[in-house]
Design a protein around this nucleic acid. Structure first.
Lengths: 226, 226
DNA sequence: GTTGCAGATATTGTATACAATTCTGTTCCG
DNA sequence: CGGAACAGAATTGTATACAATATCTGCAAC
């Protein structure tokens, strides 16, 4: 993290977002301004701008006079995030399938290959990140920058949701669904891609434990609105 | 603007967003940090945080070392915004119709009434703002906070798009569509509400002039990537 | 042993100082 | 008269100082 590189608020935010996405920074982690400033070798000014950006993406929660924490999405929020994804992603997958070039198809293939490699190497965080990038890449291929930005945010938030609510099951169901999507893309079958994405998202929520019991409030304080 | 009130970055951002939404701050307007700091009676620190927030909502464009400007969405971006809205809003209108209480119905009626009053008083900016709030309110009633946040951003961006690309026509087509939606809500007809919202959005884009000619690059500089 | 308070410590919130960059207007030369 | 070049002004970028607030520690009282 202490690269000789020149950090800006954008690069710091991206670096932190990736760390969150890869579960190196679990939900609830305190992100102290001084700590980060020292870690990156910059002043608190830049750190604050980065944290502000992440809070706007709902990846970080800012508590007045108490600091920044990696967000802990509620069960409610978890449902909403996947509800939003189900509105955006299936149609976007259809558009992508209809515009897909061979080069873009190769990019998606490479993504799945890298994810496999990461899994084999035991790098689960990296595999999770790549799995998310697959979805973002689809939005990019659909050539819808605006929708892509929304999906990108939702994907990152989904990573937090998975960290909190994932229940152990088969680990490879993910790549299976992505393989099926890839086939639909390869045959430029938009309707199929839309349907597969819809099912994929339903499978994802089904793999979560979103019962209302045992809400995350790690501390009693959280349970009582500070 | 020079209230004795206590301004925070959030309230300043909200105040600016409303000004943009009501077309009091047209696209391209320079938002100088010192000017704003003086206008609100605060330091540049707060102003910068507010501008950063607005830039994340794509309402303000930050140009390095040159300052903040009210965004000027391109034709491309305009299309994308309405594409995104068409993915989110019709389904959300359906959900809203199915959950609508009588009190919420009254809120929507009041909104339309206020919009009419604003139009009669010649307060076009306020009417435009209320017209947008109608859409946001629907998302709120659908009880989907996450989708609501996206729609809220898209509505504000739509206001910029209208400022740039609106072609004069019948002025009241807006309230007509909202009236029709209200009837669908009153009869809790989700399918109809979804269909009406879809048509409403199509009418909106149709009322814009999105031909690719004469793109906004006010200055030559803009045309050449700075 | 727990509770309550007080001072000390640490962390965030805001303002401001200074550096870096851009803009502007004038001068000088062709 | 037109344009390059420069100096000064204005504006933004970053760091830091200080204020406000929250947290922690220790001691005393019950």
């Amino acid at each position: 993290m202490t690269d000789p590189k020149l950090w800006t608020s954008e690069t710091v935010a991206a670096d932190l977002e990736r760390a969150v996405h890869e579960h190196r920074l679990p939900p609830g982690t305190k992100l102290g301004e001084d700590d980060l400033a020292e870690a990156y070798g910059i002043s608190r000014t830049i750190v604050r701008a980065a944290l502000l950006a992440l809070s706007h993406r709902h990846l970080v929660e800012l508590k007045r006079n108490r600091g920044a924490f990696v967000a802990q999405p509620s069960v409610r929020e978890a449902r909403e995030v996947f509800e939003a994804r189900s509105l955006l992603e299936p149609r976007t997958a259809r558009s992508a399938a209809e515009r897909m070039t061979d080069e873009e198809l190769d990019l998606l293939r490479a993504n799945i290959r890298d994810e496999h490699a990461a899994l084999d190497a035991g790098e689960y965080g990296r595999a999770l990140f790549l799995s998310g990038q697959f979805h973002v890449e689809i939005a990019r291929i659909a050539d819808q920058t605006t929708v892509e930005a929304f999906i990108s945010e939702l994907i990152s938030r989904s990573s937090l949701i998975i960290a909190l609510y994932w229940r152990r099951r088969a680990a490879l169901c993910e790549t299976q669904a992505h393989h099926a999507l890839l086939d639909a893309f390869a045959s430029r079958n938009g309707a199929l891609a839309e349907q597969l994405m819809k099912s994929h998202l339903l499978d994802l929520v089904a793999s979560l434990d979103l019962r209302n019991v045992s809400q995350p409030p790690t501390s009693l304080r959280e349970a009582l609105n500070r």
